[in-house]
């Protein structure tokens, strides 16, 4: 989950996956997002060293990789908390009670939007519509979607995370 750049670059399994991704698409460049997803999930963010490594693998400039990493919301170029909570803030979820849920989460964890708890366990963000508007309020914790989340349910859900 939170390997360092050096650990990752000497991880055989990781290098094997990168090789496999390179051959997956009609043109190598199309593997970029998949490679970045892989790095993001292994490290929790995508360090400059890793960006340079990917640039070499795909014969692209490091500036191109940085441009891509910073464009997409799901990629981070700096470390964040071990777990990422994203609360949907868009209209249908707001109508369902999304603001009440967000306030609860923010108070419970003692952090505001964009902040990380001091123990490094949680980072709190808002996110745009998660395409499950009939079941709002919706949140994602890492890759898992939770729907119709009440403040009480949220307190239960987070017990499963370390």
């Amino acid at each position: 989950m939170t390997k360092s750049s050096n650990e990752l670059l000497s991880d055989r399994e990781f290098l094997r996956k990168i090789e496999k991704l390179k051959k997956l698409y009609p043109e190598e460049k199309s593997a970029l997002l998949a490679m970045l997803h892989l790095c993001q999930s292994e490290m929790g963010y995508i360090s400059l060293e890793i960006q340079e490594f990917i640039a070499k693998e795909l014969k692209l400039s490091p500036a191109h990789i940085k441009g891509v990493v910073t464009f997409y919301e799901m990629f981070f170029d700096k470390p964040k908390g071990r777990n990422l909570i994203q609360v949907c803030r868009t209209l249908p979820c707001m109508l369902a009670g999304g603001e009440i849920l967000f306030e609860h989460i923010s108070t419970k964890l003692g952090i505001k939007e964009g902040q990380t708890t001091s123990d490094g366990k949680w980072t709190l963000m808002t996110v745009e519509c998660l395409a499950c508007c009939d079941k709002g309020p919706a949140i994602m914790i890492n890759d898992t979607l939770y729907t119709r989340v009440s403040p009480r349910e949220f307190d239960e859900i987070i017990k499963d995370y370390r």
Partner: peptide
């Protein structure tokens, strides 16, 4: 990877090509 604009068809094609 989290960008509404990638639903627009030409942005989507750029994204498939590993671009912003």
């Amino acid at each position: 990877a989290g960008a509404y604009i990638c639903g627009e068809e030409t942005a989507l094609m750029n994204s498939i090509e590993g671009k912003r």
